[in-house]
Design a protein around this nucleic acid. Structure first.
Lengths: 337, 337
DNA sequence: ATTAATACTTTAAACGTTTAAAGAAAAATT
DNA sequence: AATTTTTCTTTAAACGTTTAAAGTATTAAT
């Protein structure tokens, strides 16, 4: 069953290929194609079930109507959420999404973005991995339409859709202070990623602004290898001492899960023994014995705006938009009242 | 910064485009390209950082080295697991993956597969949604290389990589019986999907083979809308009665999560009040107070074999392989000993 | 009845590759 | 020295579209 081509329709109707192309691309008016011919062409296309060859189309038009998406790790809730949001919005706008996961690895990130660019995607939406600023700069210079989400490099002038991580962490910490907590621990990742530094900064600033003197062991940073073990050690530092922390704030949902699991193992009751707040939610919270208070990232909105921004760049050329979205507090029962 | 083309390299070296193409496609030997010319061409390609235009390549060769993947719902753990497995294996073989999620909707499934085929993917790996057998048959007839995973239609002759769901459910149920359970509930989805029917069948057969008379209220099927509510009702049926079930077997991880959550709400203690087994695991189990006994699907293997099978079809034409993988029992602490 | 304007259609080049087939140069055989 | 063979290179068509530009009817204006 050979594919039907424009040529076949042209022969079938008895006109030139050009006319068929005009009509099937909605340029009948513009090109003043005769009504009768146009009708015949449309009928023939339907009858023969013509399906355009996008490869040929792309070659000629230099447009693929495909967006390349690179997430940090497909296993994160953030990634699946943002992916489906982006897919849905892209689809609405007539774009497809090709997607890959860098697994938080700069090398894989470079490779992936290169592959996507070589596949002639019209633009990229990426969650940059650690140490990817050089590649981001390269991409930016090469002229590929590019939008970063979630993470960004302050020294780089790129489009990005992000949160005010400083403010979020500041608010979370302030909330804990208002609830009467005096020794608040913060578990973050050991990383160079700016958005996570911002979270640490917000945490510290809130303490300072409320006149709480910061104790170094309150802020624990988890290295890349064996994170579960790292979280355990961190919590021991915070909770197994003279004046233990009375609240723990986790900088990511993954850390929260590991933390809550560890607390289960330590036979600590949330929130009686210790209050807990998570940055970002996790499906796993569903099975914890109490609902987990957390900070909510607007994934839907982020995905939508990322696609819109990208398409804007694709269609109208470079911009440098730094869009900061509002995120929100979701009260659960994991904090002492 | 205009893209570097074969033409540019040819001019740079002073040879024809054909020669450049031969060399850069590893056909230097075969086409007996002069050693010196070949070396110069390779050097120039490196120097100019030549990146082939895959669109043009594909147009000519009718190969895109792209696999289309349709999953049932990107939010399932199965989907993310299988997606990364497929991506990794495809990458190894020099293929890319374009991906979409049908959200368990036949219409979206049709649309997605059509889009992917129009994008000239070399083949499709799909988790078919309910009511998609017509589309599957169409695709099969159109000659697109096709591999189904996880689910399949027994009346359709297609390549598929699946589990023996009957056997798995049979073994799970038998295990519960061996542990001394006499009233075993099974929570499944209300669906026409064959693999889930197989699970019900395995469950029933195990009861029958062990001489346990099946009570209708033990088998609960959850409809599509408001599944959480459905699970709650189902568990009430099973557990709030004269002779309540002493064990519940959930047919999917999503059902398990909702079930365990509901049990928390009902103040039922696992496994003291009721034993629980899940088909497939979930990250959420991490936060449950006891480890959840479950049946493990070999996602890595499934993805790998799916890719291998598909590439085999792409390269060597149609086959009809029904590959059944072994799956395994993972003991936790959610069943009475 | 010309000419000019309008309405419609076709031609042909281009997009960046691949690859038969033909051609040219060099080496080997008469 | 002429011929054949081998080695290396180029030519040119093709993949399936899009789209200026040119062409040809038809209608309107003089």
């Amino acid at each position: 069953m050979r594919k039907v081509l424009l040529k076949n329709i042209a022969e079938h109707v008895g006109v030139s290929i050009a006319l068929v192309s005009y009509v099937l691309n909605g340029k009948a008016e513009e090109k003043q194609v005769g009504k009768e011919a146009a009708e015949k062409i449309r009928a023939a296309a339907a009858e023969l079930n013509y399906q355009p060859n996008h490869i040929a189309k792309s070659l000629k038009t230099r447009k693929t109507y495909t967006i390349g998406l690179v997430v940090a790790d497909i296993k994160y809730r953030f990634s699946t959420g943002i992916t489906s949001a982006i897919e849905a919005e892209a689809k609405k706008k007539g774009y497809n999404v090709i997607f890959g996961s860098s697994n938080e690895n700069a090398e894989k990130f470079n490779e992936l973005t290169n592959v996507l660019v070589n596949r002639q995607v019209d633009g990229l939406i990426v969650v940059p991995s650690e140490d990817s600023q050089d590649q981001i700069a390269l991409l930016q210079n090469s002229g590929v339409p590019l939008v970063l989400i979630d993470r960004y490099f302050p020294e780089l002038n790129t489009n990005c859709i992000v949160l005010d991580n400083f403010k979020a962490a500041y608010e979370i910490t302030s909330y804990l202070i208002r609830q009467g907590h005096a020794r608040i621990g913060f578990v973050n990742l050991e990383t160079t990623l700016h958005h996570l530094h911002e979270r640490s900064r917000g945490y510290k600033q809130a303490l300072a602004d409320h006149g709480i003197e910061f104790s170094p062991h309150w802020l624990q940073k988890i290295g890349v290898n064996d994170r579960a073990k790292g979280v355990e050690t961190a919590l021991n530092q915070m909770l197994k001492r003279e004046a233990p922390c009375d609240a723990v704030f986790f900088a990511t949902d993954t850390l929260s899960i590991m933390g809550l699991k560890t607390m289960n193992g330590m036979n600590l009751k949330v929130p009686d023994d210790v209050s807990v707040i998570s940055f970002d939610e996790a499906e796993a919270f569903d099975l914890f014995y109490c609902s987990v208070t957390h900070w909510r990232q607007p994934l839907e909105e982020m995905g939508k705006i990322a696609v819109k921004t990208l398409i804007d760049v694709i269609k109208h050329g470079k911009t440098y938009k730094q869009i900061t979205l509002e995120s929100s507090f979701v009260a659960g029962k994991s904090c002492r009242e």
